[in-house]
Design a protein around this nucleic acid. Structure first.
Lengths: 138, 138
DNA sequence: TTAATACTGAGTAATTTAGTCGGATATAAG
DNA sequence: CTTATATCCGACTAAATTACTCAGTATTAA
């Protein structure tokens, strides 16, 4: 029930990109330094973020990553899903395979928990996170 | 972000115990059979449940496990915590060790998610789950 | 032309998960 | 008093996942 470092790093990294949204592409080297995350690990993470069209990578000198949509339109749920897959606490009956699905009382519980997690995650945008960060650094 | 089988099994097993609350101790062999879970794995799980005083084990023939409190006073949160530890999505700053805790915007997010999970889990009792199960089997 | 940067695939050590195994101990029933 | 039925307990292990690293290619600005 713990979010992997990949998910945590992804959100933290995206906040950095969001904070520099107006000043051009942010290179991974920079993110790696200020967030103290391995640059090569960040590469993997940004592959996932790119696949889900959350960012665009710009190669070459002065390159880096930029947001693909306004920070108000990217949620932490989008980010977590991009690197970790669907937000579900328990993946029983993944494709209708569970024999006792119809009598299983716990399925409803897991669904409720998953939904409440999604609500928080989808209800928080990158813009929110960037604002919190700005407030904190003040 | 996925709940381990241990946590899932623990809740399912406790529902079985709750359903037989009035008819005496429930042996692991029985739970193992109807829930299709390894009996030896269940032993491990019930060690944890016992440590947190959710159940009492009765040895010998005709023995088994019984709830230590009314099903209305045991929540799914209690069960999950017993076998998985605290319900936190991200355990950064576990003992004030995180250097950037004061500037980290994501901490608040993880706290919100963790709290919303806890609310659902602590808001659902074993009695609720047992009732759902009874409704389903009807 | 060079330096900076993203892109890509493969590999790997450490950790966690999901159990198993072999026994000791307690108790009810016959 | 013996036997069958249970819990209790500690150690062990295979498989999966996590959290990376490594080595190289491709692209672009200065």
């Amino acid at each position: 029930m713990r979010l992997s470092t990949k998910g945590q790093y992804a959100v933290r990294a995206m906040v950095v990109v969001a904070l520099h949204d107006s000043t051009g592409p942010v290179p991974l080297r920079y993110i790696a330094e200020i967030e103290d995350i391995s640059e090569q690990y960040l590469e993997q993470i940004f592959m996932d973020l790119r696949k889900d069209d959350l960012v665009t990578g710009l190669r070459g000198a002065r390159g880096g990553y930029v947001l693909n949509r306004p920070a108000e339109e990217i949620t932490s749920g989008d980010i977590v899903r991009a690197v970790e897959g669907p937000i579900v606490l328990v993946d029983c009956d993944h494709d209708g395979a569970c024999q006792r699905a119809h009598v299983c009382a716990t399925r409803a519980l897991w669904a409720r928990v998953s939904e409440s997690m999604s609500q928080v995650l989808d209800g928080t945008t990158l813009a929110d996170l960037a604002n919190w960060a700005r407030e904190k650094s003040r």
